[in-house]
Amino acid sequence: MNLTLRVWRQKNSITSGQFVEYAAKDISPDMSFLEMLDVVNEGLILSGEEQIAFDHDCREGICGMCSLVINGKPHGALPATTTCQLHMRFFKDGDTITIEPWRASAFPVIKDLVVDRTAFDRIIQSGGYVSVSTGGAPDGNAIPIPKEDADKAFDAAACIGCGACVAACKNASAMLFVSAKVSHLSLLPQGKVEETRRVLNMIGQMDAEGFGNCTNIGSCEAACPKEISLDNIARMNRLYAKALLKNKLS
């Protein structure tokens, strides 16, 4: 296949960027989107030009490192799929593909298509964990957990923290990410203990990072490669109200 790429090129976080057109020639439909970019980059190296910088790691859809807004959609138009798992057979020969970085003031562009997502790390540091001071890991079934709760917690835990929710949201809101983490931990007995502190601190940090607010549209849910549900945001909204009152009354 032969494609035309319109790629966002930006030298660093200070300079402004612009779209640059590249021809991607002789692309196999069996290549992943990232492999296609690898081929384009090899061509750029041979001609002595600067490669296109993009984030990637596991390339099997589980690490959350790859990003890219492809034709206006985070991770491309294929639902429940990360960019690394998106294959070129989903495009047509002769297509023009626009490739942009995640856009959010909390995710500044580092270079080209690479953005700084450490805001998510700081949110996790503010409460996205269970404090265990001593002892080894308990036996798997030592703590009985209802199957329904375990399933909901597991669905929330599927979040890979890629930031597609922020990228998709017109307000660059991180609610889906934060609510997935809050839900995943608060649904389980180990995480329940620190529920109040966790939800207050994580939302405090989320606001401090400059993410936007939820306008209940559901773009995040539609774009999420792990299909994290808006139910988690509803749960977080409940838990936050509960935490504020508990904090007041305790």
Binding site: R6, F19, V69, N71, G72, K73, T98, E100, R103, A168, K170, I217, G218, S219, E221, A222, A223
Partner: peptide, 8 residues
């Protein structure tokens, strides 16, 4: 973004 309206 350059490409398209808000998803969903």
């Amino acid at each position: 973004y350059d490409g398209g309206k808000v998803v969903a």
